[in-house]
Design a protein around this nucleic acid. Structure first.
Length: 261
DNA sequence: AAAAGGATCAACCGCGAAAGT
DNA sequence: TACTTTCGCGGTTGATCCTTT
């Protein structure tokens, strides 16, 4: 007969992921890669189904994810691709390295659709809206939240990202020789490999929150006296040594072989 | 200052295709 | 070949944050 069931869902956790769960999943995949999502949660010690792990990895934990808002150029490209491909978000996302289909889909539904309507274009057909009055009325029937044309100015006003507070604390740091050494140690610790820090950052400047950097520094200092990267490192992962604010971008240029899917 | 409504996005659900037995 | 399971996709939901009143 066929394979075993994916998961019985009994006793499995749902809802938002905790930092501990993220670390477990991240650590497991970095060291073992992905061969079968069904067994990933079991081996990683997670009370999640494989499907949930896959989604979390793809949409949030993948080191090559591109963070930040979409540029105008990206939005234009999304509109262009959507006119050709329709709602095939994964196909559209394949044209944007570091972006996920979920991210593009959300951005389309929350921002680009409004933008297109404002430009007088039908988001589904990409054709000009002939009868704006009728269209507006029908939109309001299907989506009562939509603003009418009399509120255009309001609708299109700049929407400040929620995480501006975080962004404000992000600094561009010049990497000193000592810092390079520390970051190299960090990467080595996480990936069990020597890493050429210069090629990692392609220069001497990176953007990182100062608190994250100091946390990295202290974590490394502590890790030097521990051996949490042993064979069974999942069990030995020290949660206190990690900082949820450390940007995954730090690891974006690591050897692709580590992330074979 | 508080309540209400809107916007955002992470996560879930269900389905179809592909692959294993 | 039939059946079962896994994977990936797109639609949808709901929690949280933000803005307006």
């Amino acid at each position: 007969m066929g394979r075993k069931p994916c998961c019985d869902k009994i006793g499995l956790k749902r809802g938002p992921w905790t930092i501990e769960e993220d670390h477990r999943l991240m650590n497991f995949i970095l060291h073992n890669g992905i061969h079968c999502w069904r067994i990933v949660p079991k081996l990683a010690g997670l009370l999640r189904c494989g499907k949930s792990c896959r989604l979390r990895w793809i949409n949030y934990l993948r080191p090559d994810l591109k963070r930040g808002g979409f540029t105008d150029a990206e939005e234009d490209r999304i509109m262009e691709l959507h006119s050709q491909l329709g709602n095939r978000w994964s196909k559209i996302a394949s044209h944007f390295p570091g972006r996920t289909d979920n991210e593009i889909k959300n951005h389309w539904n929350t921002k680009i659709k409004k933008k297109m309507k404002h430009l007088g274009l039908d988001p589904s057909t990409h054709e000009p809206i002939n009868n704006i009055t009728d269209q507006t009325e029908s939109d309001q029937k299907t989506n009562p939240n939509m603003c009418s044309n009399t509120n255009e100015g309001e609708e299109m006003k700049d929407q400040t990202p929620k995480n501006d507070v975080i962004a404000e604390t992000t600094k561009t740091l010049t990497i000193s020789d000592d810092d390079e050494e520390l970051l190299a140690k960090t990467c080595k610790t996480l990936c069990a490999e020597e890493v050429d820090i210069e090629s990692l950052f392609e220069g001497n400047e990176i953007s990182i929150s100062s608190s994250s950097f100091s946390s990295l520094y202290s974590n490394i200092s502590r890790s030097e006296s521990s051996s949490y990267l042993a064979e069974d490192s999942i069990e030995q992962w020290d949660l206190d040594m990690t900082d949820p604010l450390v940007p995954w971008d730090l690891f974006a240029n690591l050897d692709d072989n580590l992330f074979l899917l």
